[in-house]
Design a binder for these strands. Structure first.
Lengths: 219, 219
DNA sequence: TCAAAAGTGTTTTGCCTACACCCATGA
DNA sequence: TCATGGGTGTAGGCAAAACACTTTTGA
């Protein structure tokens, strides 16, 4: 144990999330050194006294995903005394949503996408952090806080994709006709006129979110 | 400007809130020394490396209100570089709900209750913090996140009181009959059998929240 | 022609809304 | 008896829920 002090180490962890085939995935980084060598961790950096949290989130996201995020969400701050074996490190967690296909391979780090319900072995308390943060994120998606749904579907999408993601997040099935009816009748989505022919079967029309979405939620 | 360092000063601010006659009020402390002498501030303490945020919130609440809080809510962390003139201080803000009549006068500090929409002159960026935190708190009350409504009405209350608070928070008027009907038909409240005869007019029946409240919201 | 996924309409149900009069009490 | 706030019921509209068949495409 060190001496009592009013100076604190603070790390900023960035949960880089995406929607992939209706699943919620996060981008993790493999730890190259001890402790927890070979385990996966949430990307992050230590905060200096000359940076805000937001600066660090931007840097981390660029470093790991090659993307400068336009928007970020502060999730929670963990201050447990035993988070790290040596000295207490405060962790401030942020979430950033990215389009998976804009993220290129990273040369400096070994990174990987993981389904939120199929996480690998993770270092420190990071698995607990991911689970807690995702629990609150779920609610935010369900109630569309800060228009967060749009971050996962910023451009066009099929109603099937959206429904699949929605059912995954809300853990409930919904009738396809009712789902579509609601979105369309409430004016949350608009047709783009394009079609998606990538899948087998009848091509699906593409939709995008309208500004009206921010006043409502799919719940 | 000091030198770049990875050590940070962190303060934990505790918004002690209550419901009074349908209004949301917070307990502030008058600053006795420069800077901002005579201005009001959110109570708080500097975090040491041997404490968690929760410990500090507990201590601050006891120090200011004489109460050990059972529950607290982490609201937001501010890391702007210019929050304080001398050096950057990170502020982590928590909310605690108390019953106003359990808070006794404080001998060590000058404290006062203020309506959230009638705040006094406040020091630092505390007024901005209060406003931002309250904005998110409002949503939490409206959607009853973490069963927060119950924290403001932990024991029995009249439906009139509750409606007044609700209309204040939601900034919308609601028909008395419909309000009562919803609460009762959804099973969110139950009669205690007691009556409140403190006011003039017909005595009002007292109700308390049921466990069912946590599954729903008044919205 | 078959498999796979997309698209569509109607009926029922329950909740939210609007709305006005009587009741119990203390002054 | 009056002023003050508390308590109650009904009808209409609208959105959610339940429910099954047809269409388009590529293989």
């Amino acid at each position: 144990m060190g001496k009592k002090s009013y100076y604190n180490i603070v790390e900023v962890l960035t949960l880089i999330g995406c929607q992939d085939n209706g699943h919620f995935q996060i981008l993790l980084k493999k730890k190259k050194t001890e402790p927890y060598k070979g385990n996966w961790i949430i990307p992050g950096n230590i905060l200096s006294n000359e940076e805000t949290f937001e600066t660090v989130v931007r840097n981390t996201t660029y470093e790991i995903a090659g993307i400068i995020p336009k928007k970020m969400l502060q999730n929670y701050v963990f201050s447990d005394l035993n988070r790290d074996a040596s000295e207490r490190i405060i962790a401030s967690v942020y979430t950033v949503s990215v389009l998976k296909n804009l993220v290129h391979e990273n040369k400096d780090y070994e990174t990987g996408w993981f389904d939120i319900d199929n996480l690998p072995i993770m270092g420190y308390d990071h698995k607990k952090i991911v689970k807690e943060v995702f629990a609150s994120l779920r609610k935010q998606i369900i109630y569309n806080t800060d228009n967060i749904l749009k971050d996962f579907f910023p451009y066009d999408f099929t109603l099937g994709e959206l429904q699949k993601f929605w059912e995954y997040i809300a853990s409930e099935e919904i009738d396809r006709r009712n789902f579509r009816k609601k979105l369309i009748s409430q004016g949350f989505v608009a047709q783009t006129g394009e079609e998606d022919k990538r899948k087998v079967g009848r091509p699906s029309k593409l939709y995008c979110f309208t500004d009206k979405l921010q006043e409502g939620s799919l719940k």
